[in-house]
Amino acid sequence: MSNSPEINIFAESELNISNKKTEGLFRILYMMMTWLLILPVATILAILVYKGGPMISFEFLFSNPIKGMTAGGIFPALIGTVWLVSVALLFSVPLGVAAAIYLSEYAKDNWFTRMINLAIINLAGVPSIVHALFGVGAFVLFFGFGTSILAASLTLGIMTLPVVIVSSYESLQAVPMAFREACWSMGATRWQTIRRIVLPNSVSGILTGVILEVSRTTGETAPIMFTGAAFFLPYLPESVFDQTMALSLHLFVVSTQVPHVPEGLPYGVALVLIGMVLTMNAASIAFRTYLRGRKKW
C-alpha cells in the first residue's frame, strides 16, 4: 500500500464501469415494464371518455332505455346494480368478517383450520361462470328464489366471500400481538379483546377490503346472467324477489345482442360502469389514508 497523494485510491475501475452499465440497464427495463402496465389502463380510460363522454347526460343516467334499447337512458340498470351490490354486501360482509375473526382470533393452527384456509383459497379461484351455475342450482332452483335479485346477490356474495375473508384476516393480523397479550394478561376474554382493541384497530383495513369487493361485484356479469339479471326490464325492481337490469349485463347486451345501437351508447354505459368502480376505489384509498393518519403506535 502506498500512501502517496498522487494515487487516487477512490478512482473508478473497469469493473465499476461495467457494473454501472448493467445497473442502468436493469433500471430502465423495470421502469419500462411499469409504464407498460399503466398504458392499457390509460388507453381504455381515454377511449371511453372520448367516445362515451358525449353520451353522458342527466337524461342518460336517469331515464329508461327506449326503442329496443337503442336510445334513452340506463336508469333501471344503474339502480339494479346498486340493488345487487347492496344485497350481496349484506350477505357477504357479516359472514366474511365473522369467518375472518374466527380464523384470526380463535382458531388453533391444526389440520382443520388449514383445510378451511385451503377451501377459501380455492373458492377464490373458482371461475365466475361456475359460480353462476352453482347459483342457478342452489338459489334459483333448490331454495326456490327464482331468477331474482336475491339469487343473483347471493351468488355474487359467495363469489366475493374469499376476498372479504382474506382482506379482513390480513387487517386483523396486522394488529400487534402485544395489544392482545396486554388484554389477556389483565384477564380479558377473547371477545373482550376483539371488541375493545382488535376490531377498532383493524376496521380501516376491513372497510378497505369491503370497498374493493364492492367495485369487483359491480363489474361481474356471468354470475348474475342466469340468476337474476334481465335482458330488458323498463321498470325498477320493488323487492329482492324481482328481476332487475344491471349495468354490466346491459353493456354486454347493447354491445353484442341488439341491432342498430348507436356507436357511442356502449361506450357511455362502460364509462358509467368504470366511473362507479373507480370512484369507489378512490373512496376506499382516501378512507384508508384518513384512518391510518389517525392511528398511532
Binding site: 395489544f179 397479550e181 394478561s185 384477564g187 376474554t189 392511528k295
Partner: peptide, 20 residues
C-alpha cells in the same frame, strides 16, 4: 377460572405495551 387467575396475577412485558 382463567380470567380470575389473570386478574390475581398481573404481568408487565419486556416491551411496554400500552393499549392504543
Amino acid at each position: 377460572e382463567l380470567v380470575q387467575v389473570r386478574k390475581q396475577i398481573g404481568m408487565v412485558f419486556q416491551r411496554p405495551n400500552p393499549l392504543p
